[in-house]
Design a protein around this nucleic acid. Structure first.
Ligand SMILES: [Mn+2]
Ligand SMILES: [Mn+2]
Ligand SMILES: [Mn+2]
Ligand SMILES: [Mn+2]
Lengths: 153, 153
DNA sequence: CACCTATGTTAGCCTTGTCTAACTTTTAGG
DNA sequence: CCTAAAAGTTAGACAAGGCTAACATAGGTG
């Protein structure tokens, strides 16, 4: 018996265990966030300009070039990216697969926010963070709700 | 003229500047996340048990006690928390105000996800991360949509 | 083809948030 | 009132992801 039989307090308590799992899930999401944002952006740049250059990655991420160098080398260690010094960056098959999943998720989240009547700038801004915390379950709910809304429910 | 007059490529490009601002916003949100989660939890524990003890904070956050000690001292430096060594933790007026805002936001996000048909566990889990990336704008849209859905639209 | 400028990398620093191991203080039972 | 267990703190390590300053390379232009 948790909290030794209290008289049902005000705040709803899901239990310490469940709450701890929630926070752990958030911490895990943040661990993969850098990789996800990078591969997604690299895929976009390749589509947009034929190649992904550190200079462009840095500009679009809003970070300085040395940060990109360091993080790209982490992605290379993780097998998501292939590249030779001073050359453009490419995605490995694993990187392409991850990028595709991330772009899909990003698109779904943005479309959903837009369908709620949120302006495009805000939708993109919020989606950039939200995307990493959306379970597959929730993502599907977003998809369903988007079409429902679009049929001006 | 950005990208020197291309022939409208496949991927939609919001411009490097806007994209960088989005990522900067996410980084900022992550900077305040620790403080937000702690004061929210401290407020919950005070309501639930009359006081907030490090041991309970650690358990519910899923971290070890020394982590809590260190972070609480950061919150104290930030003026959000007041406490004496070995004693329970309390919120300053600033801390209470922040906690109240965070709890409201958390509740709105959870209610919204539930209204979408998501199960409670998933809703709580996803909300714990999403809450920090929801602009006031989006939060209001969530509120409106929740009532719309509850009237089984 | 030599050189200047863009681009990229390296080295080294900082902050945040986590941990373990060891120590201290509080508190409850006998 | 003493003492053992629970709770809390301190010290020190580590990884991630930022930064600046300084150096290295690649490539387009004169
Ligand atoms: Mn993102
Ligand atoms: Mn949270
Ligand atoms: Mn929360
Ligand atoms: Mn986040």
């Amino acid at each position: 018996m948790p909290t030794h039989g209290r008289v049902t307090p005000d705040a709803t308590d899901r239990g310490a265990k469940a709450q701890a799992e929630g926070f752990a899930t958030v911490r895990q999401a943040h661990e993969s966030e850098m990789a996800e944002d990078y591969v997604e952006l690299i895929a976009e740049l390749i589509e947009l300009q034929g190649e992904a250059r550190p200079v462009d990655i840095a500009e679009r991420l809003g970070v300085k070039p040395p940060t990109v160098t360091k993080n790209i080398s982490r992605l290379k260690d993780a097998g998501l990216v292939s590249r030779e010094r001073y050359r453009a960056i490419f995605l490995t098959p694993a990187g392409q697969k991850l990028a595709e999943a991330c772009r899909r998720r990003h698109r779904i989240v943005v479309a959903f926010l837009l369908s709620l009547g949120i302006d495009e700038d805000t939708a993109e801004r919020d989606a950039e963070g939200i995307e990493h915390h959306v379970s597959e379950n929730t993502l599907e709910a977003f998809e369903r709700a988007t079409s429902r809304f679009e049929k001006k429910c």
